[in-house]
């Protein structure tokens, strides 16, 4: 991995970011032969820092990667996980692709919309929820699947989905953990998950160490 030192201009652009995010940004840039490759990881970090992919965030990422803001916007808008509008604390996604559809995903989605009061594709509940239907998330054997901040729950029924919404709304957990939610609200799984994993997501950004929002015990 190559050594990366930010220019004064680059460093200034992200001086408002937390120290860990600044350090991670430099590390991410060091992982690729071409800094343009860091766009997607850096967009995740900008979401952590700014709450969603803001215009400023795209400018910041552009400065770090040598792209114009329009180019960053072009990339960010291609991918569905980069949210370009403010989102709730809990991004609840319901897979409604074919396998989940066959096993009642539409009813699960309807239950979540009803219980949260937030329609599909929108945010509400005083910033608590964003609800969206998503395409296949690779849990077809455990359909229907629901994701909270990209942490997965398999085999969800409409009733359990309502409980999940209430649990999130009333308990407002700091970290959502796939193991815990699966135990509380899940059913049949696509496969044996093996040992429990204690970590989860803090924000609606995938809880991946190098540029995500991992909470719970360190891995």
């Amino acid at each position: 991995m190559k050594e990366v030192v930010l220019t004064a201009k680059e460093a200034t652009a992200i001086e408002g970011w937390s120290k860990p995010s600044q350090q991670r940004s430099v590390e991410i840039l060091s992982r690729y032969p071409d800094k343009r490759s860091a766009v997607m990881p850096l967009l995740y970090i900008s979401m952590i820092e700014n709450g969603y992919v803001t215009e400023d965030g795209m400018r910041q990422v552009g400065l770090l990667t040598g792209l114009s803001p329009a180019q960053v916007q072009s990339v960010a808008s291609f991918y569905t996980m980069y949210k370009r509008e403010p989102i709730g604390d809990y991004l609840v996604g319901v897979c409604t692709s074919i396998s989940c559809f066959l096993l009642g995903a539409d009813d699960v989605l309807a239950a979540i919309e009803d219980e949260s009061g937030v329609p599909d594709g929108e945010s509400g509940g005083d910033g608590t929820f964003s609800i969206e239907h998503v395409e296949c998330n690779g849990a077809c054997g455990g359909a229907p699947v629901v994701l909270v901040n990209w942490e997965m729950i398999e085999g969800v029924t409409p009733e359990k989905a309502r409980e999940l919404v209430r649990w999130l709304r009333d308990g407002r957990p700091d970290v959502v953990n796939t193991e815990e939610m699966q135990r509380l609200f899940g059913g049949k799984r696509a496969f044996d998950w093996g040992v429990k994993e204690p970590v989860g997501a803090i924000l609606p950004v995938p809880a991946f160490g190098p540029y995500g929002s991992v909470g719970g015990e360190a891995t």
Binding site: S68, P69, A70, Q73, S74, F78
Partner: peptide
């Protein structure tokens, strides 16, 4: 060499557009 106009979004929603305020 001045990429100020770009594709945005995906699939049937693709549009050509500039960045806000740029």
């Amino acid at each position: 060499g001045d990429p100020l106009i770009e594709f945005k979004d995906r699939g049937n929603a693709v549009q050509v557009i500039t960045f806000p305020d740029e």
